[in-house]
Design a protein around this nucleic acid. Structure first.
Lengths: 149, 149
DNA sequence: CACAAAAAAGACAAAACGATCTTTTTTATT
DNA sequence: AATAAAAAAGATCGTTTTGTCTTTTTTGTG
């Protein structure tokens, strides 16, 4: 479905959304440990996210990554577009370039409704809203080891 | 979502389901041309499908690939398992190994219902049933060039 | 200022995926 | 028996993805 890179990126953003803010910055090392992801690889992804304004960062001692207000108004969809590209969800399930609602492939009617719904959910919900829901529902989870908090 | 290999394989099976039977066998060359897929690559995939009993074949002049009755009772899901592996649809969207209904990741509730439904559709519907539906609905499409028939 | 902590940048390596090419085996036909 | 058509088998190659490593830049602190 998504690339590894994209999965790491989403988890990192959610981690930052929960644990960081303008005054609490977090270094790659810490993030990679908590998420159990390869550290240098994650560093590269964070750079990409930073240069696309999805994450903020400061250098030097006490520096690190964090989400500011603008960053928290972004969506999961923005992250997917940034890492995996825009066409992750609009491509035909069977890879046919001309598949569409009007000219459907044999599985279009099965797959298309779900893709549309998921796309909408990911596109319309901000990171901050998503984190809020997670916390309200009590389903907050440490992304490390995956234990309930 | 699916690998290229798997997309080619599904299209090839559907093509064979529509155009072949025990007495009408089709060679790789023809199939690859019709589906506009790389020929040697498709040949390798057809071998894999054949050795897994999803497709039948005979060698020699007049030989080729076709679907027999058993083959037509298989499902799209069988094809996906054969080419991309069993875990294509049961893995967590964020790649977390321990994600489940009881221990959900932050996007589990969004993604999970859709994955389950699609999985069921692909698993429960036989190739022959699928082709039947396609033909009844009049949405039969040549997989080449993707024009309505 | 010197130092150390951190991100930024980019070169490099390994594995998976996509695709091609050549050779071998089987088999129908003449 | 010879030939040719077809799948089977497997060696090879290029690209993308995944991941590591080293160097540079920035910046806060003693």
């Amino acid at each position: 479905m998504l690339s590894n890179a994209c999965k790491y990126a989403i988890r990192a953003i959610l981690y930052l959304a929960i644990h960081s803010d303008e005054t609490t910055k977090i270094g790659v090392k810490k993030i990679a440990e908590e998420l159990e992801t390869p550290q240098p690889f994650l560093a590269k992804l964070l750079r990409q996210l930073t240069s696309n304004k999805l994450v903020s960062s400061t250098k030097g001692p006490g520096g690190g990554f964090f989400l500011d207000k603008n960053n928290k108004e972004k969506s999961i969809w923005d992250v997917i577009c940034c890492i995996d590209g825009t066409h992750k969800f609009d491509k035909c399930f069977l890879g046919l370039s001309k598949c569409s609602d009007k000219n459907p492939c044999p599985v279009h009617s099965t797959v298309s409704p779900f893709k549309k719904k998921i796309l909408n959910e990911f596109r319309d919900k901000t990171i901050s809203k998503l984190v809020e829901e997670i916390e309200v529902e009590g389903t907050v989870i440490s992304l490390k080891g995956f234990d309930l908090k």
